[in-house]
């Protein structure tokens, strides 16, 4: 079973809960959601509890992530986008911590679940829609009407813009989900080769070196992907929020 590359995504109930016929069990995925929140919030809380004028190492990391996201949001959505800073910061820290926790062997990767990433993407798009209509009313629909397009092309352009807007939550969620899923499956497959070749005698042990090297290299790559996907998620969130703040601005 340890060699099944899909098994790591299996959800198992820890505390079965059922309300009104709907399953709300506390599962291993729920456990790692709690762990993600505990790790990220605990780190940020204790790293900044000193409030040092000259930051220590942990406080530097916390401040760096804060300024990283603040810079990203200011660049992507302007200074008026800073009201969304807690959201973007939470999303980035949550996704990053979840991805990094998933790098531990036998840990559950919650971002490899399409429903989780899709829910996060819907949260972003929902925020964009609600804020866009609240702030600009029907002018928010200008988002789908780029300025300077000849009238004949307008229906086509509007159709393309609407489709592109609707595909955003899909692309946002599938990108993160697929990256984490594929990366973990690949890692598991190559690691499984090492184990199975190792049981095949001297020649097998010699041959197992290659997948072992591959596994080490892939682990490094996966750490990069874990950070990169959190970054991409946050950057795209900033871009979409920019549309809600400046609908005619592109």
């Amino acid at each position: 079973m340890a060699n099944d590359p899909i098994h790591q995504f299996q959800i198992s109930k820890i505390v079965p809960i059922e309300i009104g016929g709907i399953d709300f069990s506390f599962t291993n995925a729920s456990l790692f959601m709690v762990a993600t929140v505990a790790c990220a919030a605990g780190f940020l809380y204790f790293a900044t509890s000193q409030r040092g004028l000259i930051p220590g190492r942990a406080q530097s990391v916390a401040e760096m992530s804060y300024e990283f996201i603040a810079g990203m949001l200011r660049e992507g959505a302007g200074s008026s986008g800073m009201k969304f800073f807690p959201l973007v910061f939470s999303l980035f820290m949550f996704v990053l911590t979840a991805n990094l926790l998933g790098m531990f062997p036998y840990f559950y990767t919650i971002t490899s679940q399409i429903i989780v990433t899709f829910a996060l993407a819907l949260l972003v798009i929902g925020t964009v829609l609600v804020y866009g209509f609240y702030k600009h009313g029907l002018h928010f629909l200008q988002l789908f009407v780029p300025s300077g397009v000849p009238g004949a092309l307008l229906p086509l352009v509007i159709a393309i813009e609407v489709i592109s807007f609707l595909s955003r939550p899909v692309s946002l969620s599938v990108r993160l989900f697929a990256n984490m899923l594929a990366g973990h499956i690949t890692l598991k497959v190559f690691a499984g080769f090492v184990a199975s070749l190792g049981t095949m005698g001297a020649l097998g042990i010699g041959g197992a070196v290659l997948p072992l090297i591959m596994t080490v290299a892939l682990t490094g790559l996966e750490f990069l992907v874990a950070f990169l996907q959190a970054y991409v998620f946050a950057v795209l969130t900033c871009m979409y929020l920019n549309d809600a703040i400046h609908p005619g601005g592109h």
Partner: peptide, 25 residues
């Protein structure tokens, strides 16, 4: 498992968001 996943995501992420918004940020 979608319902349980969603519920726990809402609980955990909601809590995390509140913590970030009220304390950390």
């Amino acid at each position: 498992h979608f319902s349980s996943q969603l519920l726990w995501l809402v609980i955990t992420f909601g809590l995390f968001y509140l913590l970030m918004k009220k304390v950390i940020v």
